[in-house]
Design a protein around this nucleic acid. Structure first.
Lengths: 327, 327
DNA sequence: GTGAAAGCGCTAACAC
DNA sequence: GTGTTAGCGCTTTCAC
């Protein structure tokens, strides 16, 4: 039973040609209203839907976007993914998702996506090697790096203004009168991380300050606890963390040690994940606008899909400082 | 520049027929080692990869699985999605993801996925209407409901043993000597919710008890706060919540009111999301095994894809009570 | 083991 | 406006 119904069957049942059926389902094609109605009626009765894959073969447009994302369980990434889904759906694009457990996997994943003839790729994960970039350029598939800058040229990029955001954090701490300021970095080698580091260091330098201690928490809560211990040993009066998960770890470790926040220690995070607003944390943080980032990524990609000649461009999304009790 | 390279070009460059190229990339086809080597070398040089979509047209297998998921930003859903990604990748399957902002959307989403010739569908969202079910059956596409039972027949299902899990929560509270027990439910109409409710009520009934108050928190933190206020007005000595997000809301509201946990109030959640383990919450909860759920869903789906004759089946994954400080 | 030929379901010229 | 024709890139009988 139940073979997939094809345009030919609809055509036969409606007494028209295949082309008529095709045109009925192709926006902007010329069909008379009467035949269109008849065809639509028959199609509905038979449960016909055009085969998107067969269509891709001839139109050379799959309307599928490949998305590579790391650590989907990171709350900010999950938000980003959700916004991305909304942005793509709004444009009638489908999302082929591949999580990247390890950053080195990104390459292989890209190649796999390419075999599905994706119209574009959004990379929100790890490193994007020049070999992967070359593969995309080779098949003229636009790429946009989301929340990650790339090493190889040719890809568009969308990210938060990490530099300005981190600088705001620094300025806020300085304005609070803090002087013994420590810094918890994310994953070394990720552009996002170095941007935040630079912005923060610049902000401190402007006030004639420098961090009294630095440690990496790899953007995770667990690693952040260890890093927090290390930093707290230097008796700082403030700590800026490159994301909220690590800042929450600092808050928890400080609480366990009887360090009072914000009196003894001011803490600032980055992202503004939902958990940052919990009363148990009330974390002051540099908020990223996930919605705007996702929209911009989808828009940039669509633009380059429409006009392949267009050069890769870059969009920076502004961050805002959200003040809560921790600083 | 850079048109997509096809099998025909590889064939020409290697001095063989298209069929030879095809066989080289089709596992289990007979090609002599020497020609295979020559073809692979040429393919690598030219950057050839078979067009997965064109292949689908003839094999009638896309190796794409459609996934419909609600509230990706819910931490447990994000975990589930990550595990699903891993399970599908391990089987060489691609994931076409569609978030469902509203449960009623599920139908339309399914139809859209179907036009991409997905080999199967995993639904972890909202309601699955009989019309959508019919559409899937019509094109012989297997469906598995994940963490959601369905109304129409024909779909396989994977879920936690919500009944037993909730019952364990009830038994634990009773064993703790609690008698004034309240209950916060999730979203009415979702099977998961009614299963947990039944299990919990059964567990209490066994000890001759019944909830002193019931309120719905719609599985969200914000709604959970309101529900917590309502329940706390009844001065319960324990509250069981249908998920962790709501239990965290209870903890926060209780803390704000000076209610001591667990002395005055024991709290138990459901899911065991990462945040439940945070020292600020230390939430006792009924853990769901996201990994096992995702694996089972992928396995069930693959099984039905291979043997379409097979009847829909159902897998229940065991829950475990994770004891922390809140109960 | 290898090539020739047919066709998966669809759209896009091209005539009429 | 509508039908006819020719592929999109691939796999798969079928001969050899």
């Amino acid at each position: 039973m139940s073979a997939r119904v094809t345009a030919a069957e609809v055509a036969r049942a409606a007494g028209v040609s295949r082309s008529a059926v095709s045109r009925t389902f192709t926006p902007g094609s010329s069909v008379s209203t009467s035949t269109r109605n008849r065809i639509e009626a028959v199609a509905a009765r038979l449960g016909y839907r055009p085969n998107a894959l067969a269509r891709t073969l001839i139109t050379r447009r799959s309307r599928i976007i490949g998305v590579v994302m790391a650590a989907i369980d990171n709350p900010f990434h999950a938000q980003l993914l959700q916004c991305l889904d909304a942005a793509l759906q709004a444009r009638g694009l489908a999302m082929l998702l591949r999580g990247a457990a390890r950053p080195e996997m990104t390459d292989e994943l890209i190649h796999h996506l390419l075999s599905y003839q994706v119209d574009g790729v959004i990379v929100a994960s790890g490193l994007f090697s020049s070999s992967a970039a070359k593969a995309c350029v080779g098949v003229a598939t636009p790429v946009v790096m989301l929340d990650r800058l790339m090493r190889a040229a040719g890809a568009s990029a969308v990210g938060s203004d990490n530099r300005a955001g981190a600088r705001m954090a620094a300025e806020h701490l300085v304005a609070l009168g803090r002087r013994r300021i420590a810094f918890m970095s994310g994953t070394p080698g990720i552009s996002t991380s170095s941007e935040r580091a630079h912005g923060f260091l610049d902000g401190l330098a402007e006030a004639g300050l420098a961090p009294i201690a630095i440690a990496s928490g790899r953007y995770e809560y667990a690693a952040g606890q260890g890093a927090a211990e290390a930093l707290l040993a230097h008796a700082p009066d403030a700590i800026f963390c490159e994301n909220d998960l690590m800042a929450m770890a600092v808050l928890d470790v400080a609480r366990a040690r009887g360090v009072r926040v914000p009196d003894d220690l001011a803490v600032i995070g980055f992202d503004d994940i939902p958990a940052a607003a919990l009363p148990a944390y009330a974390l002051t943080t540099v908020a990223q606008d996930a919605r705007a980032m996702a929209d911009a990524a989808a828009a940039l990609l669509e633009e380059r899909i429409e006009k392949p000649a267009r050069r890769a461009s870059r969009r920076l999304i502004a961050c805002t400082l959200v003040r809560r009790r921790s600083a």
